[in-house]
Amino acid sequence: MKNTLYKIPASTLFLGKNLVFVPECHSTNTLALQLCQNSGPVEGTLVITPNQTAGRGQRGNGWEAEPGKNFTFSLILKPTTLAVKDQFYLNIFTSLALHDYVTAKACTAVRVKWPNDIYVGSKKVCGILVESQISGNKFSHVVVGIGLNVNQQKFGTDTATSLSVLTGLQFDLQTELETLLKFLEARYLQLREGKMTLLMEDYLNVLYGLNTPLSFDVDGMPVEGMIAGVDESGRLRVLMEGKERVFGVKEVGYKVV
């Protein structure tokens, strides 16, 4: 599909150099995964649409995005040197890149809610969904889906916001796409270079609720606790009732306040 909205970014090394634009689709992640099955696109391929009708998020949640106002896109990556056991670093590099970008837009109190939602204050501005296919003990491809609220003004939930609402500005999507891809590429290169300690340190520094008392929902019951970090496989480490427990994405809930 010929691109009718976005230009190939000039300032990245490989992200977005192959750009697949569709005027509408159910989910850019689904389309990107189909491309991986059919043709094996080059690393850095960007699949983008102004109108995603059935965006997918963590926990099977949907993603609301007003057509033409926001970013709904997916990147196809091939992190061949990344060990499968370290796959949570795919969430880490992506969420850090989005944190870097949103912070650069003069937003304060930007935090990552585990595993990879981007919040400004108590409102969510960005969601990320990482899906991968493994062949043997290596990744054959990874699809990183990003939904970022840019110019949308009204939402169906009071916990969502956009860069425009936060700053009072309107943003040119082409310009912002290029800027965002540069942040994503910088963090991805850190991953490819094996800078895991740096990435984990930076992630914990911006992780919402770290070492802070919170109320968690575990099996439908409220439990008081405190986030202690994440383990090697990306599970959330929480101190509860004097003991450390670990949780997967669908095993615990908590609100950003």
Rank of each mutant, 00 (worst) to 15 (best):
D217W: 00
E185M: 10
T72G: 06
I134L: 09
Q34T: 11
N151H: 08
V206E: 08
L19Q: 04
L207G: 03
G225N: 03
N116C: 04
A160N: 05
G57C: 07
P115V: 15
G127W: 05
D219P: 00
D219S: 14
Q34K: 13
L77Q: 05
F71A: 00
V218E: 09
L166S: 03
S39V: 14
A109Q: 15
V42D: 12
S162A: 05
E131D: 11
V252D: 01
L198H: 08
L5P: 00
G44A: 07
F14H: 08
E178F: 07
C25A: 08
V125N: 02
R111M: 09
K195N: 14
E24N: 00
Y101V: 01
P67Y: 08
R245K: 14
W63R: 03
A228M: 14
I227P: 03
T80E: 15
R59S: 02
C107H: 05
V150P: 01
L46C: 10
L198Q: 15
L169A: 12
L19M: 11
V143T: 09
C126P: 07
Y89P: 04
V110S: 07
S135H: 13
R237N: 10
G127C: 09
D100Y: 13
R111H: 15
E185L: 10
Y254K: 01
G220M: 04
T94W: 02
R56S: 03
T159F: 15
T45I: 12
V143M: 08
T167M: 11
Q153K: 15
G229D: 09
E185H: 04
L204E: 14
A65I: 02
M196P: 00
S164G: 07
L19A: 08
Y188D: 13
I76S: 07
L198Y: 09
V238E: 06
E176L: 08
I134K: 09
G145F: 01
E193D: 14
V150D: 04
D219L: 12
T94E: 03
L35R: 05
T4G: 11
V84C: 04
K250D: 13
H26P: 00
N116H: 06
Q87S: 12
L173D: 02
E185K: 06
G68P: 04
K123W: 07
N205D: 15
K113T: 07
T212C: 13
V230D: 10
G16T: 03
V84W: 02
T159E: 11
F171Y: 14
F88L: 06
W63A: 11
M226Y: 01
G127H: 02
N18P: 00
G147L: 05
A228C: 12
L191N: 04
N51L: 01
D202E: 15
N116Y: 09
G121H: 06
Q133I: 09
N116A: 06
K78W: 07
M200H: 11
D219Y: 07
T81P: 00
V230Y: 10
N18F: 05
N29D: 02
M1V: 12
I128G: 01
S215R: 11
K195R: 14
T161H: 04
L181Q: 05
R187F: 12
N61S: 13
E66D: 13
L75C: 06
T49E: 03
C36M: 10
I76Y: 04
T159I: 14
L33W: 03
K255L: 14
D172Q: 14
K195V: 02
Q153S: 15
E201H: 11
K85G: 09
K154H: 13
D231K: 00
V84S: 05
